[in-house]
Simulated assay, not measured.
Amino acid sequence: MTVTIDDVRAAARRIEGRVRHTPVMPAGDGLWFKLEQTQHAGSFKTRGMLNRILAAGELPAAGIVAASGGNAGLAAAYAARELGVAAEVFVPETAPRVKVAKLGKLGARVVQVGAEYAEAYAAAVVHATSSGALFCHAYDDPDMVAGNGTLGLELLTQLPAGFDTVLVAVGGGGLIAGVIAALHPAVRVVAVEPATAAALHEALRAGAPVDVPVAGVAADSLGARRAGRIAYDLASAAGTPSVLIDDRAIVDARRLLWDDYRLAVEHGTAAAYAALTSGAYKPSPGERVVVLLCGANTNPSDLA
């Protein structure tokens, strides 16, 4: 099971007019931010979720079911509302209150189960099977991946002079898989992961997806216990490097994005920028780098 550039192009046609073409912001010599945190429902996952639902064709009466640390659930709730179908979202009991509250506002039924994403996921799969609802995997689904990859196609039109590298924060891998499908081999795609939730990093090291411990400040959005097979296969074939960063670097990068650019993002999103600010990723002289800012569903009170 893989995803190709043709799949991404088909997804772009399918979701055209339903997603925002998010802006690119210059951030210094040879550095840009892709402001995907301004997407509907606050993250890139809306692209993938819309494509997943639209590609499925006629939906069951029970609607859709998703499991999420927060952002995939918000995307599912938003997409379901826009397409006129019911949505039920399973989230861990540790999910940020700001995300849980927004799920309710978007009209989804919210079920909180377990202490981490893996437990919410297991409960969601059981419910989807019993109810007949369409299960929408948060990251390891070809339609989700292809939809996410549409932001890569946007980048090509927004930076026509070209760019060399994209830094992508990774949890389960649904975003980086789409970006690789859209941009490899013309552009180098680099995975950035918390050292305390390094599912793709460990999969690449082991030669297959493996279970990893999950902890840390970004666990609500990057806390997948196991990388998706699609992400592993694409990253492995592309020779995608993964760099690890610690919580302090993530917190500092999130603060810098606010202080220097007035960009309010969640900790998982700040991980991509932390690769630069911490020195975990050091661009070569003249290297043109895009930092993908993928989500903004955060409580901004600690940024004031």
Rank of each mutant, 00 (worst) to 15 (best):
G152N: 13
R226A: 07
T46N: 03
L222C: 03
D247V: 09
E36D: 14
R52S: 05
A203R: 06
A108K: 03
A101Q: 15
V89N: 04
A208Q: 14
A235K: 09
A133M: 08
P285A: 02
E119G: 07
I53T: 05
M144I: 09
L153V: 13
A87M: 11
G30Y: 01
A10G: 10
K102L: 07
H21R: 15
T46V: 11
V243M: 00
Q112L: 11
F163Q: 05
A138H: 07
G223K: 01
D143P: 14
R188F: 09
R97H: 14
L50R: 04
T240D: 01
G73M: 00
L256E: 12
L234E: 12
I230W: 04
A161G: 13
G30W: 04
H127T: 15
D252G: 02
D252P: 02
D6N: 10
E16Q: 15
A101E: 15
V125H: 11
W258A: 04
A280I: 11
P213H: 11
R20V: 15
A203M: 03
G228E: 04
T46L: 02
N299C: 05
G17K: 09
E116T: 14
A253H: 06
G104Q: 13
G48N: 00
T240W: 00
V243G: 03
E16D: 14
A206T: 14
R47I: 10
G42H: 05
A197R: 00
C136I: 11
A218E: 12
A101T: 15
I176M: 02
F90N: 13
G174C: 06
V265G: 00
H21K: 15
G70T: 11
T269W: 07
R288M: 02
A275N: 09
V19G: 06
S131N: 09
G104L: 06
A235R: 10
G223F: 02
R20W: 15
L153G: 13
G268Q: 05
G174V: 03
H184A: 10
V189I: 12
A231W: 05
A161L: 12
L167S: 15
A55D: 13
P209S: 03
A101R: 14
V8C: 04
A197Y: 00
P185L: 05
T150L: 00
H21I: 14
G173T: 11
A55E: 13
D247L: 02
G70A: 08
P60M: 08
E16H: 14
E119T: 14
L292D: 14
